[in-house]
Amino acid sequence: MINFWGYSISETRSINYDTNDKSMTEYIARVVPSSKLCIGCGGCTAGCTAGNLTNFNIRKIQMLMKRGENKEAKEQLQKCMLCGKCMLVCPRGVETRKMILEMLNYIKTKLKS
């Protein structure tokens, strides 16, 4: 909640695709083309070593990123241990590990604010 002289603007509950920053998803789609193959089956998340211990959902993070919602990625991605198990499970052959590394890379070097 941001307070503007007595008026409060609550965070939107919907994805505002028109105004969201799509630069990250465009970058990822370019450098990890296989990331576009995801059908959201959740296999990655089900077996995830980190997700087994904490609230870390790689399927959701990358789905949100694809809609320009990068907040989750920024906050959550550091929890990944890069063990690569997700890559071994993915029925679509998404290079999940590379996708995560590139997302981290993008957040560190290019994503402003």
Partner: peptide, 9 residues
């Protein structure tokens, strides 16, 4: 399994 419609393992 991930219950993807709930968004939780």
């Amino acid at each position: 399994v991930e219950d993807t419609l709930v968004g939780k393992p």
